[in-house]
Amino acid sequence: MLRRIFDHILEGDAPAATECVQRALADGMDPATILNQAMIAAMDETGRRFEAGEIYVPEMLVAGRAMQSALGALKPFLVQADLEPLGKVVIGTVQGDLHDIGKNLVALMLQGAGFEVIDLGTDVAPARFVQAVREHEPMLVAMSALLTTTMTNMSTTVVALRAAGLRDRVHVMVGGAPVTRQYADQVGADMYEPDAASAARAARAAAKRRPSV
């Protein structure tokens, strides 16, 4: 059954993936096993194939949709079993920028990696990032920017987090087509990742570390 859930997510077949999860649960399978060995594993494989250029954004989107749908069926059982997510992530596209295809993929992969993702959407003002960090206490803030004209708002957001006394409580990760590692250093972020799959890997690694700034 785990194999079938894994395959259905990879194929992007949401109804089949969800039905298999429901059946596995009805058969008494451990929710954590379903999550880790079938669902997270399938999203890891999706990320690997995407990075390797074996699949592309549309395939990744449908895999993400299947994962989300199956997760909907699993969630009540995870809560019952007291299974905590790996951590919380607040994500958004910076103020002035409405590009979100890349950001959505990153959010999907983070969710697929076991994080609870709070997606603030696009055109997110620094104050909204600050407010969300206060409210949700995430381990990571992830910002996306596609426009050179507004990517400076990554820096403005980091400054706002610092001013609010929250900067040392969260990791900050940035990405998007014009963003580089060097730029990440410049704006005071902890991490830069070039794509959604590597973002999920880096977030997992960061979940094991305390934010250090």
Binding site: G12, V57, P58, E59, L61, V62, R65, I101, N104
Partner: peptide, 11 residues
């Protein structure tokens, strides 16, 4: 719309 179109393309 961009993401809806990708879903249509797949579905």
């Amino acid at each position: 719309g961009m993401e809806p179109l990708m879903f249509h393309m797949m579905d």
